[in-house]
Design a protein around this nucleic acid. Structure first.
Lengths: 339, 339
DNA sequence: CTGAAAGCGCTAACAG
DNA sequence: CTGTTAGCGCTTTCAG
């Protein structure tokens, strides 16, 4: 174990501070600080000396001290329910895009669709004093909502539009998305329609899509012939199993609406294995418009959502600040593609 | 604009500090601090008063001040090349698992397989003084490597084992994984083997798998009959297109090794559309063992990697600290499944 | 059981 | 152009 007195310039026991750099360069902390930040009014010689010194000790600034001093951080917090759902990964990707080059940095928290974890995640984020927060959905419990309202930073709720926003919103009406798909399928001549979904009790957006879908059916004198739901995370596996089960009971369905594309993929695989023609004997409809949809050997319907764009716009809103009169609500309606 | 003097307890112009809470509770900052942290030796009355005050103003501690003061953070940095590749999302998922309940928090950075962005991401992370860093791969450029070596915190390199580690490593030999798959396919009787991959110039792990694969073929007197590679990100779409192209030139291939399962999925879809029997006339082999592989209507080969487990173990290593003599290298070899 | 003082590393504001 | 002072919000001493 090295003692402090053993330290040398290239030592790594303790990260070099600005003071170390300054001393080595033979200037004051302030001059070093200014030189490193490229401020005007610093002599060429000082800049040079400081840069050499900084490089020599491998100086990396301390953002904790910087942010504490500046009373603000460059952090943008993003709270999403899941990472294994590629949709949210793509939202993050859009966030990363938009953040690039702005000097801001994004920080993520995952909730697993658990309101308690969501509360904790948001609290954690807030304790780092981010410049803004992006959270998924509009249905936070009161406790969480109060926390967000008291935060005094821009809050952007994404992926949903049905509800009462805290501050800004970027997303789509999930209810309408479900309804629109129902209408499209009815228009395409389908009448014996089933539903397959996962974790509707936790995923309020999937729940809203189903609700919108069912209501639109109702308005057209139809009802769901049958449905299968489970609490498992949505995967192709689960979609396949539930589809097999549903079709076992209702073999004459001519259409199934799935809670998303992953589930729908499983449905497609079941049909292919069982020799059921898609879409001739049965139409498969998913949600999101994920990449693989276009390369499937059969055509399925889907609602193409603008996930990256939503992430990008959310960041923009935060970067633009809270100027009055600026639009705080953005609709990115999905485009329906029947395949 | 409110002036400071307008502030009330429930005001949100400026987040409440410990001092605000203390004043409201009629105790000193220290007593408030101790009460909030559940320290021993605080009177019941004080605890109560402080908690009420904290709740009243919606107090959220300031982690910047806390960490600066404590000279350490609860942060674990994770630097990955991509989020839209579900594999890394699953690694993060494992990280999140392992972090849960430890009081630590994970922070992610994404590099897009770009060494410059990787350097920046790591520097950014380091400026927050994390307790440890998890980075992907063993092939960082010298500059980045020096940065990591000087950081004086546990560094865990994940997903690869072929190379010279900086500190700790958790992963698998990509070269060996490729070789093992080659041997398995040869053993299964395949001889006319092709390859389809994406972004091998950036994804060094995919590159290593291909290299190991080719070398194993060579040792068995075989060579790749043909291959198709592109610089695009790996998707089912891309896999499908490249497969179509490759089979156009070499229709008599009896096997294709893909850079990963996503690409392989595209290959499967092409074969199904083109009426090519899988695996009878052609075997399809991917990598990772993603969920959907098991629900595909045809059987494909894959190497099942232990992604979550790798993420978990990486966190463990950091949490366990740098005790001497502790194992710093962990092999999680994938299991080959021929379908 | 409680409080006052000092300091974490940095920068804004003010002097030279 | 350069340096000094003060302070960001918290905790760790050290005294009561």
């Amino acid at each position: 174990m090295k003692k402090p007195s053993d330290r040398t310039a290239s030592d790594t026991v303790r990260r070099a501070t600005l003071e170390d750099v300054a001393r080595l360069a033979g200037v004051s902390k302030m001059t070093a600080s200014r030189a490193l930040r490229g401020a005007a009014d610093v002599s060429k010689t000082s800049i040079e000396k400081v840069q050499v010194a900084a490089a020599h000790v491998g100086y990396v600034g301390n953002n904790l001290a910087l942010s504490l001093s500046a009373q603000q951080t460059n952090l943008i917090g993003v709270v999403i329910p899941s990472l294994t759902n590629i949709v949210f990964a793509e939202v993050l990707s859009g966030v990363a895009d938009a953040v690039e080059g702005t000097g801001r940095q994004s920080v993520f928290g995952v909730t697993d669709y658990d309101p308690d974890k969501e509360y904790q995640a948001i609290r954690n984020m807030l304790s780092w004093r981010p410049a803004g927060l992006i959270v998924t959905g509009l249905d936070q419990p009161d406790k969480t909502r109060r926390l967000l309202e008291a935060a005094d930073i821009p809050i952007v709720q994404i992926m949903d539009l049905d509800g009462d926003p805290i501050d800004a919103v970027v997303g789509l009406s999930q209810t309408r998305a479900g309804a629109d798909m129902a209408l499209a399928l009815i228009t395409a001549g389908r009448r014996k329609i089933g539903y397959v979904g996962c974790s509707l009790n936790r995923d309020t957006r999937a729940y809203k899509r189903r609700a919108g879908f069912v209501e639109a059916l109702d308005q057209n004198g139809l009802t769901l012939v049958g449905e299968r739901c489970s609490d498992a995370p949505s995967t192709a596996q689960e979609g396949r199993a539930l589809t097999a089960d549903l079709l076992g009971q209702f073999p004459d369905l001519d259409c199934i609406y799935f809670s998303n594309d992953d589930m729908a993929m499983g449905g497609v695989f079941h049909c292919m294995s069982a020799g059921i023609q898609v879409p001739d004997s049965i139409m498969i409809a998913g949600f999101n418009g994920l990449d693989f949809v276009d390369s499937l050997p059969v055509k399925i319907a889907t609602s193409r959502t603008q996930r990256r764009e939503i992430g990008r716009r959310a960041v923009q809103i935060i970067n633009d600040g809270v100027a009055d009169g600026v639009q705080r609500s953005f609709d990115f309606p999905p485009m329906i593609d029947l395949g």
